[in-house]
Design a protein around this nucleic acid. Structure first.
Lengths: 86, 86
DNA sequence: ACGAATTTGTGCGTATGTATG
DNA sequence: CCATACATACGCACAAATTCG
Protein backbone atom coordinates (compact mmCIF):
# COMPACT_ATOMS: atom_id res chain seq x y z
CA UNK A 1 0.00 0.00 0.00
CA UNK A 2 1.37 3.35 -1.01
CA UNK A 3 2.12 5.86 1.71
CA UNK A 4 0.99 9.43 1.15
CA UNK A 5 2.36 12.67 2.52
CA UNK A 6 0.90 16.06 1.74
CA UNK A 7 -1.02 14.71 -1.23
CA UNK A 8 2.09 13.15 -2.71
CA UNK A 9 2.90 9.46 -2.85
CA UNK A 10 6.05 8.41 -1.04
CA UNK A 11 7.84 5.81 -3.13
CA UNK A 12 9.85 3.03 -1.59
CA UNK A 13 13.38 3.41 -2.81
CA UNK A 14 14.04 -0.28 -3.15
CA UNK A 15 11.18 -1.13 -5.52
CA UNK A 16 10.34 0.26 -8.92
CA UNK A 17 7.63 2.89 -8.87
CA UNK A 18 5.64 1.07 -11.51
CA UNK A 19 5.61 -2.07 -9.37
CA UNK A 20 4.34 -0.16 -6.38
CA UNK A 21 1.55 1.33 -8.46
CA UNK A 22 0.76 -2.09 -9.92
CA UNK A 23 0.38 -3.49 -6.41
CA UNK A 24 -1.82 -0.57 -5.47
CA UNK A 25 -4.16 -1.05 -8.44
CA UNK A 26 -4.18 -4.81 -7.96
CA UNK A 27 -5.32 -4.13 -4.41
CA UNK A 28 -8.06 -1.80 -5.55
CA UNK A 29 -9.31 -4.41 -7.99
CA UNK A 30 -9.33 -7.16 -5.37
CA UNK A 31 -11.00 -4.83 -2.87
CA UNK A 32 -13.68 -3.85 -5.35
CA UNK A 33 -12.69 -0.21 -5.31
CA UNK A 34 -12.45 -0.77 -9.04
CA UNK A 35 -15.48 -3.01 -9.60
CA UNK A 36 -15.70 -5.79 -12.22
CA UNK A 37 -16.67 -4.72 -15.74
CA UNK A 38 -16.20 -1.08 -14.81
CA UNK A 39 -13.56 1.14 -16.33
CA UNK A 40 -10.64 2.16 -14.19
CA UNK A 41 -9.60 5.81 -14.27
CA UNK A 42 -8.06 7.00 -17.53
CA UNK A 43 -4.33 7.05 -18.17
CA UNK A 44 -4.33 10.78 -17.69
CA UNK A 45 -6.20 10.55 -14.40
CA UNK A 46 -3.81 7.93 -13.05
CA UNK A 47 -0.84 9.98 -14.23
CA UNK A 48 -2.17 12.90 -12.23
CA UNK A 49 -3.07 10.87 -9.16
CA UNK A 50 0.32 9.23 -8.83
CA UNK A 51 2.34 12.06 -10.28
CA UNK A 52 4.27 9.85 -12.69
CA UNK A 53 4.78 9.75 -16.44
CA UNK A 54 2.38 8.28 -18.96
CA UNK A 55 4.78 5.50 -19.82
CA UNK A 56 4.97 4.45 -16.21
CA UNK A 57 1.21 4.07 -15.94
CA UNK A 58 1.12 2.34 -19.30
CA UNK A 59 3.63 -0.17 -17.99
CA UNK A 60 1.40 -0.84 -14.99
CA UNK A 61 -1.72 -1.31 -17.15
CA UNK A 62 0.27 -3.52 -19.48
CA UNK A 63 1.38 -5.74 -16.62
CA UNK A 64 -2.05 -6.06 -15.04
CA UNK A 65 -3.47 -6.87 -18.46
CA UNK A 66 -0.94 -9.67 -18.85
CA UNK A 67 -2.12 -10.96 -15.49
CA UNK A 68 -5.64 -10.98 -16.85
CA UNK A 69 -6.93 -8.42 -14.37
CA UNK A 70 -7.58 -5.74 -16.96
CA UNK A 71 -8.73 -5.61 -20.55
CA UNK A 72 -8.21 -2.57 -22.74
CA UNK A 73 -10.48 -1.41 -25.51
CA UNK A 74 -8.71 0.99 -27.78
CA UNK A 75 -10.19 4.44 -27.69
CA UNK A 76 -12.69 3.43 -25.04
CA UNK A 77 -11.05 2.58 -21.77
CA UNK A 78 -9.49 -0.09 -19.59
CA UNK A 79 -11.85 -2.42 -17.76
CA UNK A 80 -11.68 -4.74 -14.79
CA UNK A 81 -12.06 -8.35 -15.90
CA UNK A 82 -14.54 -10.20 -13.65
CA UNK A 83 -12.97 -13.06 -11.74
CA UNK A 84 -15.11 -15.60 -13.59
CA UNK A 85 -13.69 -14.48 -16.91
CA UNK A 86 -10.08 -14.96 -15.91
CA UNK B 1 10.69 -11.37 -42.85
CA UNK B 2 11.91 -7.81 -43.03
CA UNK B 3 12.79 -6.40 -46.44
CA UNK B 4 16.00 -4.43 -46.73
CA UNK B 5 16.98 -1.70 -49.16
CA UNK B 6 20.35 0.00 -49.19
CA UNK B 7 21.16 -1.24 -45.71
CA UNK B 8 17.92 0.09 -44.30
CA UNK B 9 14.91 -1.95 -43.23
CA UNK B 10 11.69 -1.26 -45.08
CA UNK B 11 8.81 -1.29 -42.63
CA UNK B 12 5.36 -2.43 -43.60
CA UNK B 13 3.00 0.47 -43.01
CA UNK B 14 0.12 -1.62 -41.74
CA UNK B 15 1.92 -3.32 -38.87
CA UNK B 16 3.74 -1.84 -35.89
CA UNK B 17 7.50 -1.75 -36.31
CA UNK B 18 8.04 -3.49 -33.00
CA UNK B 19 5.85 -6.40 -34.13
CA UNK B 20 7.81 -6.76 -37.34
CA UNK B 21 11.07 -6.85 -35.40
CA UNK B 22 9.56 -9.32 -32.94
CA UNK B 23 8.64 -11.62 -35.83
CA UNK B 24 12.13 -11.26 -37.25
CA UNK B 25 13.82 -12.20 -33.97
CA UNK B 26 11.35 -15.03 -33.38
CA UNK B 27 12.34 -16.35 -36.78
CA UNK B 28 16.03 -16.13 -35.98
CA UNK B 29 15.46 -18.04 -32.77
CA UNK B 30 13.47 -20.78 -34.49
CA UNK B 31 16.03 -20.97 -37.28
CA UNK B 32 18.90 -21.26 -34.83
CA UNK B 33 20.53 -18.07 -36.02
CA UNK B 34 20.30 -17.19 -32.36
CA UNK B 35 21.14 -20.56 -30.80
CA UNK B 36 19.71 -21.87 -27.52
CA UNK B 37 21.43 -20.71 -24.33
CA UNK B 38 23.38 -18.11 -26.27
CA UNK B 39 23.00 -14.38 -25.81
CA UNK B 40 21.29 -12.44 -28.55
CA UNK B 41 22.90 -9.16 -29.62
CA UNK B 42 22.76 -6.39 -27.03
CA UNK B 43 20.08 -3.75 -26.98
CA UNK B 44 22.54 -1.27 -28.44
CA UNK B 45 23.49 -3.63 -31.26
CA UNK B 46 19.85 -4.29 -32.16
CA UNK B 47 19.09 -0.58 -32.03
CA UNK B 48 21.84 -0.02 -34.57
CA UNK B 49 20.88 -2.94 -36.79
CA UNK B 50 17.23 -1.98 -37.11
CA UNK B 51 17.67 1.76 -36.80
CA UNK B 52 14.95 2.16 -34.20
CA UNK B 53 14.78 3.54 -30.69
CA UNK B 54 15.94 1.70 -27.60
CA UNK B 55 12.42 1.58 -26.26
CA UNK B 56 11.21 -0.10 -29.41
CA UNK B 57 13.76 -2.90 -29.03
CA UNK B 58 12.97 -3.19 -25.34
CA UNK B 59 9.34 -3.72 -26.21
CA UNK B 60 10.31 -6.51 -28.58
CA UNK B 61 12.52 -8.19 -25.98
CA UNK B 62 9.78 -7.78 -23.42
CA UNK B 63 7.24 -9.49 -25.66
CA UNK B 64 9.50 -12.39 -26.60
CA UNK B 65 10.34 -12.85 -22.93
CA UNK B 66 6.63 -13.09 -22.13
CA UNK B 67 6.41 -15.76 -24.80
CA UNK B 68 9.16 -17.65 -23.02
CA UNK B 69 11.59 -17.38 -25.90
CA UNK B 70 14.07 -15.15 -24.12
CA UNK B 71 15.38 -14.74 -20.61
CA UNK B 72 17.18 -11.63 -19.44
CA UNK B 73 19.91 -11.30 -16.85
CA UNK B 74 20.49 -7.75 -15.76
CA UNK B 75 23.95 -6.50 -16.47
CA UNK B 76 24.75 -9.62 -18.46
CA UNK B 77 22.55 -10.08 -21.48
CA UNK B 78 19.45 -11.63 -22.99
CA UNK B 79 19.52 -15.34 -23.72
CA UNK B 80 17.61 -17.76 -25.90
CA UNK B 81 15.61 -20.20 -23.79
CA UNK B 82 16.09 -23.78 -25.07
CA UNK B 83 12.87 -25.36 -26.31
CA UNK B 84 13.00 -27.97 -23.55
CA UNK B 85 12.93 -25.27 -20.89
CA UNK B 86 9.81 -23.59 -22.20
C1' DA C 1 40.18 -2.86 -3.97
C1' DC C 2 39.14 0.00 -7.59
C1' DG C 3 37.32 1.78 -11.75
C1' DA C 4 35.92 1.65 -16.53
C1' DA C 5 33.09 -0.48 -19.88
C1' DT C 6 29.06 -3.01 -21.03
C1' DT C 7 24.29 -4.25 -20.58
C1' DT C 8 19.79 -4.16 -18.83
C1' DG C 9 16.24 -1.38 -15.85
C1' DT C 10 13.61 2.66 -14.71
C1' DG C 11 11.64 7.09 -15.55
C1' DC C 12 10.63 11.23 -17.99
C1' DG C 13 9.35 14.14 -22.04
C1' DT C 14 7.43 14.68 -26.58
C1' DA C 15 5.10 13.79 -30.93
C1' DT C 16 2.01 11.46 -33.82
C1' DG C 17 -1.47 7.89 -35.09
C1' DT C 18 -5.89 5.53 -34.33
C1' DA C 19 -10.47 4.90 -32.44
C1' DT C 20 -14.60 6.39 -30.09
C1' DG C 21 -18.23 9.58 -28.80
C1' DC D 1 -14.78 19.40 -35.63
C1' DC D 2 -13.42 18.52 -31.13
C1' DA D 3 -12.46 16.03 -26.80
C1' DT D 4 -11.09 11.88 -24.78
C1' DA D 5 -8.39 7.72 -24.60
C1' DC D 6 -5.28 4.21 -25.99
C1' DA D 7 -1.01 2.82 -29.32
C1' DT D 8 3.33 3.51 -31.32
C1' DA D 9 7.79 5.58 -31.60
C1' DC D 10 11.32 8.84 -30.97
C1' DG D 11 14.83 10.89 -27.66
C1' DC D 12 17.36 11.55 -23.17
C1' DA D 13 19.25 10.68 -18.46
C1' DC D 14 20.48 8.07 -14.81
C1' DA D 15 20.48 3.69 -11.89
C1' DA D 16 21.80 -1.11 -11.10
C1' DA D 17 24.28 -5.28 -12.08
C1' DT D 18 27.97 -7.56 -14.13
C1' DT D 19 32.45 -8.20 -16.24
C1' DC D 20 37.13 -7.34 -16.86
C1' DG D 21 41.60 -5.20 -16.51
Amino acid sequence: MIKWERGEPVWESDRAVWKQIADELRGRIEAGTYPPRKAIPSLTALVQEFGVARNTIRKVISRLSEEGLLRTEMGVGTFVVPRDDR
